[in-house]
Nucleic acid binder design. Sequence first.
DNA 1: GATTTTACCGAAAACGTTTTCGAAAGCTTT
DNA 2: AAAGCTTTCGAAAACGTTTTCGGTAAAATC
Lengths: 345, 345
Amino acid sequence: MIYYIRNMKTITLKQIAEELNISVTTVSKALKGYSDVSKKTKKQVKELAKKLNYIPNASAVNLRTQQTKTIGVIVPTTVHHFFATVIKGIIKTAKKRDYMVILLQSEEDAEQEIKSVDLLISKGVDGIMISLSNKTQNFDHLEKIKNHDIPLVLFDKISKITDCSKVVINDQKAAYDAVEYLIKKGYKRIAHFRGDLNPQVSIDRFLGYKKALLNNNIEFDSSLVYICNNNDDFNDGHASAKKLIDMHGKNVDALFAITDMVAIGALKYFNDHGIKIPKDIAIIGFSNWFMSSVITPTLTTIDQPGYKMGKTAFKLLYKEIKTKNVDISYETIEMKTSLIVREST
Amino acid sequence: MIYYIRNMKTITLKQIAEELNISVTTVSKALKGYSDVSKKTKKQVKELAKKLNYIPNASAVNLRTQQTKTIGVIVPTTVHHFFATVIKGIIKTAKKRDYMVILLQSEEDAEQEIKSVDLLISKGVDGIMISLSNKTQNFDHLEKIKNHDIPLVLFDKISKITDCSKVVINDQKAAYDAVEYLIKKGYKRIAHFRGDLNPQVSIDRFLGYKKALLNNNIEFDSSLVYICNNNDDFNDGHASAKKLIDMHGKNVDALFAITDMVAIGALKYFNDHGIKIPKDIAIIGFSNWFMSSVITPTLTTIDQPGYKMGKTAFKLLYKEIKTKNVDISYETIEMKTSLIVREST
DNA sequence: GATTTTACCGAAAACGTTTTCGAAAGCTTT
DNA sequence: AAAGCTTTCGAAAACGTTTTCGGTAAAATC
């Protein structure tokens, strides 16, 4: 039976000190195990602190120690299987090191991303992790973070020109592998539903697609590439699928989509219009969202290890926080992806 | 062309004051628009602050004002469509009020939930929002929050016996409606895949199911109820589907599952074993995850407005924060759910 | 018994801000 | 010219903690 004192107002060192007729200094030192406090006093202090349910005032500690034990994370959105997984990894790993996570979302809007960065800086977070929005083209806010000497780690959606630690996958290679797999399977007219023009992942996956075609002597046909940039992957995929069929009819036999969601949008269109998967058209997605394993037909895709990326990203950030003021050498860690073959190919 | 001063160390009021040969007080007041500062001084200060990229030290402000402009949110997991949506709603609404969100996850573990609460209290957050873990049976940690005079709002997974503000749906009614819909459609042998025994939502949905049967003169058959409590909804649903068919064969014609994920697990089993949906068996899920609209067949389900719940929950919390020390009357807000009819019924 | 060492404690400064209160200087009113 | 206002500013205290530094008394050493 735990017993709580009703209405325990916030207890401070001062109150403990007064109760015990000693100084605030001694109380603080006793609690932190300093060696110049007698065992007896330590015991008294600790007992009273426990009894009164003393909890240090974090703001005061932060102000004094100049660190907050808090990191900031900015993602485009939380409602996204991959990001949710990364976030889970970050929070869990951070907790182990006694760090807490302030989460912000840019909603794929550059302005919001910039504002969020300012908020985090003013909050005095010990480090910042960002996955860039699709609309981010200027990286001054990242430089700002660096100029404030705040450790920064970019993950997944990164900026190539910013000099900092990064956690990524090799988008180009992953895309290459996916498309080459299609080619080896005998598909020749392979469409690509790509993302917006700016984001690095969008560029890299497109380049991988193109390279795989060229290296296998298949002519690149730009009319087979469709851009999905309405920030609504499912409907983008669905609409692009319609356009693809309207334009090319039977003269297309496979599709490489930039995300699983785009792929599923297309898949849905095909399913609803009597186009058989993979007989009439094969599909490969990207990310291995849970959904892709339960959809009909199940979706071939590329596994992107979100949880591990989150974990790794925090570890990188943590290392930078710890080695602050020392000359830092930035790392870029590349996570392994793998092709998951399912029914859609 | 924006120009940043390299290595801008943190700027403080003091530095601005010295530069301008005025006092820290005046600088502070100028920045905050106090009326007892001349227009001229205000202008000078504001310009220099902007030029130097002054950002107030949050810890100092917090310490002085005794509030952190930060709230804590604890959810079982971030990788969950419904929770992700709620979180999005919370973060977005909080941002509008200049609040930031510290996110923690209990991972369906009572111990972690308790520890997280302690962390948040010590962090000095201005308020806490929790969706309880399935394993939480003791609510002392919630009382502790209240005893610290920290506003608390529970959402979705709540504790009935804790006196505080809550945002919920009427699980019992929603379940009742779903099952009654099945009955009206002519289904008579309706199975239920329920959740763990303790969580309130699990209890309420089960009670709604039972009540709908009784009110419609259908005998309740406990052998048609299966418990999914392995924290892996998809596989729980899949395994329970097998058990259901093994035991009842054709002598069951509908299923009400506690979540969409459980429903989809079952759906997958039926699909893979030649059991036609909805001809042989109809399925209703719960929550209206995105996935349920793209699965084959699409899933009838109950829409649970996550984003709105998050938004509402924050607003409730905000109100409590603002009216602190005044006698509070706790509110329980019930959000509207609706039945989404799709192919599976 | 004098000196050094050890053990223990606390005053004070510092972190960066906000806000109260008083004071000085200029202005207006008689 | 005296009295009262207005405008403008800054000193100082406060928020709660950490840590340096010095001091005192007791214990140990010679």
